[in-house]
């Protein structure tokens, strides 16, 4: 029986090799389409509704991005930004539509920079599209895409959405979200209200903790900040994954010392605004319910960390 199987397997080797080569080619082909912005550039639309692409796309790197985005470039640097391609679409001298595609190097960071601004209505473009007055954003694979109109109009809005769909189609493949998201407890999780980051300034931007980095967040830590709503119970949960258990222990001590010195033995404290904060350590994870309507809901969340 064993010999028969080996013989059949040997007979099938040429076919397996052929399939493998085809698969390798397909993978290589997919990668070649998303290898860099320069690879993507020739496939990008020349029209957005009645708006036409101006000649001369601009490419910015980690140094030159500051000349393009005044003030906000550090957001992209905080997510390991690699390059940005900017294309301008104009309509007979009128307000322009600006397409910016950011190569973030990984889908995790593309998702992360997308979660920097999650306001707006969800729209089925790319992975997790959002539309708000004047601006469409989405992420796909390792790219974050922003399409901004200088002046809002119905025609511009339609053009922006159509351009978004076309750009999303040109970006091959889908990228995985950060692994830490799978560890968030599902009970009441508002899936469209999650932030992912690994820089203390970004955390303070979304939820001010303190003027010092008391949670020791760095490029080596993964952080998810999630909003919860279960019935009439609301909460915010911060989940941090550290490289070592020593990092977790130290950060727990620092947080208790500076933020929750009044915590009880279970790491829970009633805040001055009537909300509950609870800190809990689990392996390389530090979980902090920052504000919960009740202690019961806070503890329920911590028990259900995946």
């Amino acid at each position: 029986m064993k010999n028969t199987f080996q013989i059949r397997t040997l007979r099938n080797i040429p076919g397996l090799v052929t399939i493998s080569i085809i698969l390798l080619f397909m993978i290589q082909s997919t990668h070649s389409k998303t290898n860099s912005l320069k690879d993507l550039q020739p496939d990008l639309p020349m029209q957005a509704g009645s708006w036409s692409a101006q000649t001369g796309d601009r490419i910015f790197d980690q140094e030159t991005i500051f000349s393009y985005i005044d003030g906000g470039a550090e957001v992209y640097k905080a997510y390991n930004f690699r390059q940005c391609l900017s294309r301008r679409y104009t309509l007979s001298g009128g307000p322009a539509i600006i397409l910016d595609i950011f190569d973030m190097g990984s889908s995790e960071d593309a998702y992360g920079v997308f979660t920097h601004d999650i306001d707006g209505a969800t729209i089925d473009i790319g992975q997790d599209g959002r539309y708000r007055p004047g601006w469409l954003s989405f992420w796909k694979s390792r790219f974050f895409v922003s399409i901004y109109m200088e002046e809002e109009s119905t025609a511009a809005e339609q053009a922006v959405k159509e351009l978004g769909r076309q750009v999303a189609d040109k970006i091959a493949g889908h990228g995985p979200k950060p692994e830490i998201l799978s560890q968030l407890p599902p009970l009441g999780l508002q899936a469209d209200r999650i932030r992912y980051l690994h820089h203390p300034v970004m955390l303070n931007y979304h939820y001010y903790i303190s003027d010092e980095n008391i949670l020791n967040i760095s490029a080596d830590t993964d952080v998810a900040l999630a909003e919860y709503q279960l019935g009439n119970q609301a909460a915010q949960l911060l989940l941090i994954k550290y490289p070592t258990s020593e990092n977790v222990a130290q950060s727990q001590v620092d947080f208790l010392n500076h933020y929750l010195p009044d915590a009880d033995k279970k790491g829970a404290a009633l805040l001055e605004n009537g909300k509950w904060a609870v800190i809990h350590k689990k392996g390389h994870l530090l979980a902090i319910v920052l504000e919960a309507d009740s202690r019961e809901y806070a503890e329920l969340l911590l028990k259900n960390i995946q």
């Binding site: 985005i69 005044d70 003030g71 906000g72 957001v75 992209y76 600006i98 910016d100 950011f102 601004d117 306001d119 708000r132 007055p133 004047g134 601006w135 954003s137 922003s146 901004y148 200088e150 002046e151 809002e152």
Partner: peptide, 10 residues
């Protein structure tokens, strides 16, 4: 402010 350029006339 919205977007990379932190601006909308709206």
């Amino acid at each position: 402010g919205v977007g990379p350029h932190h601006f909308s006339r709206g």
